[in-house]
Amino acid sequence: MADAAPPAAPLEWGSSARFWRTILLYLGRNKSLAVGVVLLLGLASLVIGGYLFYDVKLAEPLSKMPARPPSADAWLGTDKHGRDLFAVLIVGTALTCKVGLLAGLIGVAVGTVLGFVGGFFRGWIDAAINLLTDVFLAVPPLLILVVIAANLGTSLSTTDMVFVIAALAWREPARRIRSQVLVMREAGYVNNARLNGTSSFGIIFKEMMPNLIPYLMVSFVLTVAAAVLAAVGLEALGLGPQNEPTLGMTVYWAMHYSASLLGMWWWVLTPVITLVVLFVGLYLITTGLDELANPRLRAKGA
């Protein structure tokens, strides 16, 4: 018990060479983080390679003979509209990631500000932000998004999509950051910073922010994953951008024409497998980062 286990040392921010070496060593031990990073890097290089070496215009309808199985001409086959599914994979992944990353970024930024303001200053402003967060957290997110997207109609661009998704993406980060700030503002070093005559601004940015970085990283990946999930869900319901070949839209059309019943397995499997790789990659990274940010899990080796 108390005799045996030394307290886990905090993250050490030494020289940058040691920092990177520590990260590599850590990746060796944290397998889920490593596998997640490899999956996403693989997908990213496929997309980048595709944009460089493949004709992505083939993702548009009537580019090739429709409803063809995979062949030397179209590696992943074509759909009923004559889109080359390999080109769709490249363009769709990029579009989906764009929506996820941008919405995630906005969500984390807004959420962090709200969480910080509420957690740090407390009082009525915290109560108000907390109520707002609670209200939004109580809704099935997809439902509110459906109402928004349905009312905006079928003319959504991917940029509109980013804002629609971001409208709900701030909830989880706000809550996560707030609870962390609540703990942190009671920390001895924050009290000491006040005694040091440091301003609230200084306490937030110099004292608390650096220690929040691991939590922000986890929050960011989680939010991106949630944003991608929401975006693909909306697209699969037919509420996404109509004229851009997103992955969700491909799923939508595959369902619409009952591709499975027609035996066009490639049409279903291409977006499904790509999405699975994306989701599993994001998931593994979050569990890996969670372990990094949560020393208790680390200590228990769970």
């Binding site: 001895g188 070093y189 009290n191 005694l195 040091n196 004292e207 650096p210």
Partner: peptide
Amino acid sequence: RYRTVQAVFQDPYAAYNPFYKVDHGLAEP
């Protein structure tokens, strides 16, 4: 005010920001 009112707390470990070396807490004031 804290130029003239200071404190020492119970937990000396929590008193230091783990992000910085100990000189941070001394140089700031």
